[in-house]
């Protein structure tokens, strides 16, 4: 018998005795006796039981778009991310160019997709494209990583990225500044909606990395004092058009 079988056998052996339902702390004498039907609190639902409806317990999100946009903006501000909505592409690219000049960007890392390519064209700086593979040192020396995303989550102020939508795994964490270019239709209400979207968009061939980015990289490991830019980006900018 290999280790897999040994471990699975031990698990099946252990699970022959059902456990009390959470919060009932049934005393040991209530544990089942062979031949005696077990208490309702000891019966475990089958694995096909419906998943919990998390939306009813999680932080509240308003139903309308303006409410959700305002909530996202509020959350982004709390997280020390920079979030801005623009009326059209001209405004957005002007803001990007302004940001480039203020921070003196020399090199840009990005991936080829509609919005990110357009942004790179506006920036007029040498670009390290990740699509066909890239040199890690070259990306590390870039001043900014420009990516698209799958969704913005109003409930938490998060950006949902995947290795397919955002130019791979490293692009959104290696350069010191991460700029996300999103469309306003990409705003979703909450985390359950974000997971539903992932399933609908990708299942069953999910990208190998899917992740929520909630503000710029941070640590509190020294005296629990917040420091931004622990290992990932020090700055997160979300531009929405």
């Amino acid at each position: 018998m290999n280790e897999r079988e040994k471990i699975l056998t031990r698990i099946r052996e252990a699970l022959k005795v059902p456990a009390p339902r959470p919060g009932t702390h049934a005393p040991a004498s209530h544990l089942p006796v062979p031949g005696v039907p077990s208490l309702p609190s000891l019966r475990v639902p089958p694995p096909t039981a419906a998943p919990v409806e998390a939306r009813r317990w999680l932080p509240k999100v308003g139903p309308s778009f303006p409410e959700q946009l305002a909530l996202f903006a509020q959350n982004a501000a709390d997280l020390k991310a920079h979030f801005q909505v623009f009326a059209d592409w001209t405004e957005l690219s002007a803001a990007l160019v302004q940001l480039r000049d203020t921070e003196n960007w020399q090199r840009v890392a990005s991936h080829q997709s509609e919005l990110s390519s357009q942004a790179c064209a506006a920036l007029q700086r040498p670009v390290c494209w990740t699509d066909q593979g890239y040199d890690v040192l070259a990306m590390e020396s870039c001043d900014v990583g420009v990516t698209e995303c799958d969704a913005l989550i109003a409930q938490t102020g998060s950006v949902l990225v995947t290795s397919r939508s955002a130019g791979g795994r490293a692009l959104s964490v290696l350069p010191p500044h991460h700029v996300v270019i999103a469309r306003r239709e990409q705003l979703v209400a909450d985390l359950p909606a974000a997971f539903a979207l992932l399933k609908q968009k990708y299942a069953p061939e999910f990208p190998s990395m899917m992740g929520f980015i909630t503000g710029p990289s941070r640590t509190g490991d020294i005296e629990r004092i917040l420091v931004l830019g622990a290992h990932g980006p020090k700055k997160l900018t979300i531009f929405c058009v």
Binding site: G157, S158, P207, S208, M209, M210, G211, F212
Partner: peptide, 14 residues
């Protein structure tokens, strides 16, 4: 509310 990075990995590079 949510930690900064919550990432799900489903495989090596595809």
């Amino acid at each position: 509310p949510l930690t900064c990075y919550n990432t799900m990995y489903g495989g090596p590079r595809q």
